[in-house]
Design a protein around this nucleic acid. Structure first.
Ligand SMILES: [Mn+2]
Ligand SMILES: [Mn+2]
Ligand SMILES: [Mn+2]
Ligand SMILES: [Mn+2]
Lengths: 216, 216
DNA sequence: CTTTATTTTTAGGCTTTCCTAATTTTATTG
DNA sequence: CAATAAAATTAGGAAAGCCTAAAAATAAAG
């Protein structure tokens, strides 16, 4: 029922409001969607008329229950398709986002169900992001970044920030994959860069890189 | 580069002009696309400006080489996705067309290539329709309908007319699948209905049904 | 608590894709 | 070939999305 553009707005509001469901501002949305603020205002009025968001001019916007459901369904499709592309078609994890941005708008509940089954009902996508179930419920897992881990501790790589394909290529090049064990051997007081043991090898990660790797 | 709507027009022109590449009329297109003639005229002007068709007002339209290439690519995706849905996700062959109408517009040459490889580079879709190769070349196979087969002859089922899901469901219900052997035992002079042997069983097919089954 | 800066909305336009109604061109036919 | 019918185009308009520029509301500073 929502148009492609409406789906993208709902997804952006879901992303920006995070788990707190905080109100999202017009400019935040404009930045995220690479659109002008005026366009956002206009769309918010439409989404509000359709009861998918609560919108108070000048105050911000958040998703209605119906909007949350729609946004979660789109995100579910996005992440299932990313999983398909990596698992079945052997795409690199840095290549899948753009294609999934298109595939997420395909409207066929049966296709989504069958795809999920075909993939073995995965709970996490190739970047470690949770895939909501058909009812929009996310599998929950506490999220800590590698940069928060003190020296001497061992952790398991659980996810990476998607959205920057340079970073994703870099991580692959390092040889780090989801599920791998890392041990933080030292943290430089100077720049917070980390010496990390990965199997036999010792890697050096900048604080920025470490902040984009999620661990358990 | 072409919009979703433009792709649908190009595909319709390809379909209606057939292998003869005959000029297609405005009304034919309007009927096929379920649009009004005025809308078609407008779009043909745009497609013509973009050099994807040759359009002579009041005379008809046909595809330029560039337009043929684009239309074949869309058709290739449509048929690859139909094959995916049937072979991998176990859809019925009567269920796949609508979903493929959406999927055919996904723009990612890499995805199309990988999908084709994943499916083993099929040459025919679930309805027996030829899948053009990446250069827009169709595998050719002479097409005869079952209704043209005289009594006493044995044939192999090669395809079925897609586009009517009632018919597709009916054929499945009969137990006839692509590749099956049929022997026409008798043709009623009265209504051209056929007595057809399919393995052990003897089926009766109306002339209309027989005209929608392609054989070799 | 004004003044200034920032954020947001409004006003007015543009493109794409459709539509209906009116007009024009082409085809058919007596 | 003139009259009528059918097919196609033109005219004019609507909705969705998006934009720039101007105005209004809110937030931040002095
Ligand atoms: Mn993604
Ligand atoms: Mn992802
Ligand atoms: Mn089809
Ligand atoms: Mn088909």
């Amino acid at each position: 029922m929502p148009s492609l553009s409406e789906e993208n707005y709902l997804k952006a509001i879901l992303f920006l409001s995070g788990q707190t469901q905080a109100a999202v501002s017009t400019n935040e949305l404009a930045a995220r969607l690479d659109a002008k603020a005026a366009s956002v205002t206009e769309m918010l009025r439409r989404l509000s008329e359709k009861k998918w968001v609560e919108y108070r001019p000048y105050k911000g916007v958040y998703l209605s229950p119906a909007g949350q459901d729609l946004a979660a369904k789109v995100l579910r499709k996005h992440r299932l398709w990313e999983t398909f592309l990596v698992e079945k078609l052997h795409f690199g994890w840095e290549e899948v986002h753009e294609v999934a941005e298109q595939l997420e708008h395909i409207s066929s509940p049966k296709l989504t169900d069958r795809l999920s089954a075909f993939l073995g009902h995965p709970e996490y996508d190739p970047h470690g992001d949770p895939i909501p179930d058909p009812n929009g419920v996310f599998p929950k897992r506490p999220k800590r970044t590698l940069s928060e881990v003190p020296a001497g501790q061992k952790v398991l790589v659980q996810g990476v920030r998607d959205g920057d394909s340079d970073f994703l290529r870099y991580v692959r090049q390092l040889g780090i994959a989801l599920g791998d064990e890392l041990e933080v051997e030292a943290v430089q007081p100077f720049d917070q860069s980390q010496q990390v043991r990965h199997g036999e090898r010792l890697l050096t990660l900048s604080a920025i890189a470490a902040a984009n790797i999620y661990v358990l």
